[in-house]
Amino acid sequence: MDQARIADLRRTYRDGLLEDTLPFWIEHCVDREFGGFMMSLDRDGSVIDTDKGVWQQARFTWLLGELYNNVERRGEWLELAMHGASFLDNHCFDPTDGRMWFHVTRQGEPIRKRRYAFSECFAAIAYGELYQATGNSEFADKATNAFERFVQHNLAPQGVQPKFTDVRPTKSLGFPMMTIVTAQELRGAIDFPQANEWIERSIQTIERDFLKPDLQCVMETVGQGGQILDHFDGRLLNPGHAIEGAWFIMHEGHLRGRRDWVSLGCQMLDWSWHRGWDAEYGGILYFVDMRGLPVQEYWHDMKFWWPQNEAIIATLLAYHLTGEAKYAHWHQLAHDWAYQHFPDPEKGEWYGYLHRDGRLSSRLKGNLWKGPFHMPRMQLNCWKILDQMQLR
């Protein structure tokens, strides 16, 4: 990866973020009548469903605040972030228990709440950026409260019917992984005093319970004690998810001077790359079986946008931190495959869902799951990593 390649990649990520991804969403998703953002968009950006996913309200609010605080203090970005936060405040919390909804109508009427509490972690980082942007302590308080609801509910769920019986209790990689990145964001935005404690605890949990050196894999779901559950759900690996967690841990190791954490993140990336990279067609597979057996989920071999985004960040960061040539090679593979298949050069942004061989599966640009988060976060992170690499 020479200086010409670095400069070219930097332009791709920076210009893609500022001239394609962000304008696409700002032009098409902002709801000036009822507040918030309508994210269910067709290929050309036309709204095809007016319901609003709470994850996406908070995620876009975070992105706008992040850009305002760390790229350029554009008034439009702050105004839209405040617009998103107002919808969160007015419509996305259940007044009976303080937890957040997952899915609401255009007007903000509640449709459903999930058993897990990830709306809360996305709201926490959104409020954190607004505190940093405005200095208003109410946003810092909201960020702290949302984080506390997130961890409390995931550790001891209240007021929800369990999805499974207690015959085979499980725990997921998602909770410690999201705790790490949420605490990282709050540490930077509101100087959250408990951030390091939660990050250390979560990294320890992942290393102890989810990494299996004998199998060279990162589990998605394990028993309460970290044991492997040799059934469809227990054997299911999500390489993109593990790769996402890998770069969170690498990033923390870099910030704190913990080379052991950088190595841990690289190990997670290595195992998950070998499990998840599609040697036949390219790209990161969605699901694979721990033992190489058939997977139950019928979309297992599709190529979703977000695992490619996470692989692009993780491989670039690993190369930046270690200088190992394999990571530069993997980054080129991931970047080139994704940029060959996902972008829509005519209408802008990326498609979200491809078949295994790269053919388009759906022309959707957004829904309850896909919005302006993984993609612009990738572009922003890679732009900043490449800035550092140019200085070396």
Results as ranks from 00 to 15, higher is better:
A85W: 02
A85S: 14
A85D: 06
A85Y: 02
S86F: 03
S86G: 14
S86H: 11
F87P: 11
F87E: 07
F87T: 00
L88T: 01
L88W: 05
L88G: 08
L88Q: 06
D89N: 12
D89C: 08
D89G: 07
N90W: 01
H91C: 13
H91G: 03
H91V: 00
H91S: 13
C92R: 05
C92T: 01
C92E: 06
F93W: 14
F93Y: 15
F93T: 15
D94P: 11
D94K: 10
D94F: 09
D94Q: 11
P95S: 08
P95K: 06
T96Y: 09
T96G: 14
T96M: 12
T96C: 11
D97H: 09
G98S: 11
R99G: 10
R99K: 14
R99M: 15
R99W: 12
R99A: 09
M100Y: 12
M100N: 12
W101L: 07
W101Y: 15
W101E: 08
W101F: 15
W101P: 04
F102Y: 15
F102L: 14
H103D: 15
H103Q: 12
H103T: 01
V104Q: 08
V104W: 03
V104Y: 01
T105K: 04
T105M: 02
T105N: 05
R106H: 04
R106A: 09
Q107A: 14
Q107K: 12
Q107D: 13
Q107V: 08
G108P: 04
G108M: 05
G108A: 07
E109G: 08
P110N: 12
P110T: 10
P110F: 05
P110C: 11
P110L: 08
I111N: 12
I111F: 06
I111E: 12
R112W: 05
R112Y: 06
K113D: 07
K113F: 02
R114D: 15
R115D: 13
R115V: 09
R115N: 14
Y116T: 10
Y116P: 00
Y116D: 14
A117G: 01
A117E: 06
A117V: 01
F118G: 09
S119F: 07
S119D: 13
E120P: 08
E120W: 09
E120L: 11
E120V: 00
C121Q: 10
C121H: 02
F122M: 10
F122K: 03
A123T: 01
A123Q: 11
A123G: 13
A124M: 04
I125C: 03
I125T: 09
I125P: 03
A126H: 00
A126Q: 03
A126P: 02
A126Y: 03
A126C: 08
Y127F: 13
G128W: 01
G128I: 02
G128F: 00
E129N: 12
E129R: 06
E129V: 10
E129L: 04
E129P: 03
E129G: 07
L130N: 02
L130D: 05
L130Y: 03
L130A: 09
L130Q: 06
L130E: 07
L130W: 02
Y131E: 05
Y131D: 03
Y131V: 07
Y131L: 05
Q132G: 01
Q132C: 07
Q132L: 12
Q132P: 00
Q132W: 01
A133W: 00
A133D: 03
T134A: 05
T134D: 05
T134H: 02
G135P: 01
G135T: 10
N136V: 05
S137R: 15
S137F: 14
S137N: 13
S137D: 15
E138T: 13
E138P: 02
F139L: 09
